[in-house]
């Protein structure tokens, strides 16, 4: 049950909702997605074209993955041919193209979740509501969903999400709300992972060792000087890997990377106010 909840969803924004289990996150998301109507209070504004991804998508439906997506694309207003093309495109992006002709009932839990996520992106929704949509996806698909969310926001849509990982889409979230008691308060935005820069030197022409911890971003100069940046949690492991490499790297310096501004400066055009 929710009471005294007041929030506005501007266009072109990414909104995070957090709170302990059972505080009403899913209820709020269902109200925002237009699935349920509030028994008191109201939701104002034009109903945007909406798509919703539930936390668990038990796929006990007698369709193939592609067949289901085509139906959902048509429900969202696409023509059949468009719906089929986009179904294929999104299944491919999430690495599930091989399962297009597989009955939903035979899909693994993760692949069903990919189908659930794909349906929400078919028709470029104006409001995308993700209730722990990342749960059950493999790492590549999680990254792809992060990118898809960023694309939707860039295209002017509103994306509202719940996820247990506090770092999910950190740095791109515009507003975060937290459930406390029966109310909803604005929550501080999760900062980006602090990063550490490592300067290292080796004889000119030495490549960096493969598979460095923390997948560092790096620049490698011709004189054998490398500058690597990793999340702070991986810096020790990175140093160890560099020092024990053959030939070993000489560490020239280790320093924290200044925190980039977590807020994006975007222009807000038009407010959607459910």
């Amino acid at each position: 049950m929710l009471r005294g909840v007041d929030l506005a969803l501007p266009a072109r924004s990414l909104v995070r909702v957090e709170g302990a289990n059972g505080t009403g996150k899913s209820t709020l998301l269902r109200l925002l997605a237009g699935i349920d109507a509030p028994s008191e209070g109201r939701i104002t504004g034009r109903r945007p074209r909406t798509a919703y991804v539930p936390e668990r998508f038990p796929a006990a439906l007698p369709f193939t993955a592609a067949g289901y997506l085509v139906h959902l694309g048509r429900v969202q207003g696409l023509r059949t041919a468009d719906a089929a093309d986009r179904a294929h495109e999104w299944l491919t992006r999430f690495g599930a193209a091989a399962y297009a002709r597989t009955p939903l009932a035979e899909l693994s839990k993760g692949t069903s979740q990919k189908v659930a996520v794909a349906q929400s992106l078919l028709a470029e929704p104006e409001l995308l509501v993700l209730d722990e949509a990342w749960t059950g996806l493999d790492t590549e698909a999680r990254g792809e969903l992060d990118r898809a969310v960023a694309e939707r926001v860039t295209a002017g849509a509103t994306v509202v999400f719940v996820d247990h990982d506090p770092r999910r889409l950190a740095g791109t979230v515009d507003t975060a709300y937290r459930f406390e008691g029966l109310g909803l308060t604005t929550a501080p935005l999760a900062a980006l992972d602090p990063r550490v820069r490592v300067e290292a030197t080796a004889p000119p022409g030495t490549p960096l060792p493969a598979g460095l911890p923390g997948a560092p971003a790096y620049t490698l100069a011709a004189d054998g000087t490398a500058s690597l940046s990793v999340p702070a949690a991986h810096s020790d492991a990175l140093l160890r890997a560099l020092l024990t490499a053959r030939p070993p790297w000489h560490i020239g310096g280790v320093a924290p990377v200044p925190d980039p501004q977590p807020h994006r400066s975007t222009t807000r055009d038009g407010d959607r106010t459910p």
């Binding site: 269902r30 997605a33 699935i35 109903r47 919703y52 668990r56 038990p58 429900v75």
Partner: peptide
């Protein structure tokens, strides 16, 4: 005939239950 989650997905896409 639909599980609740599938119903919710369709309801959101269709503009309400």
């Amino acid at each position: 005939q639909e599980p609740p989650a599938a119903r919710a997905v369709v309801a959101a896409a269709a503009g309400g239950q």
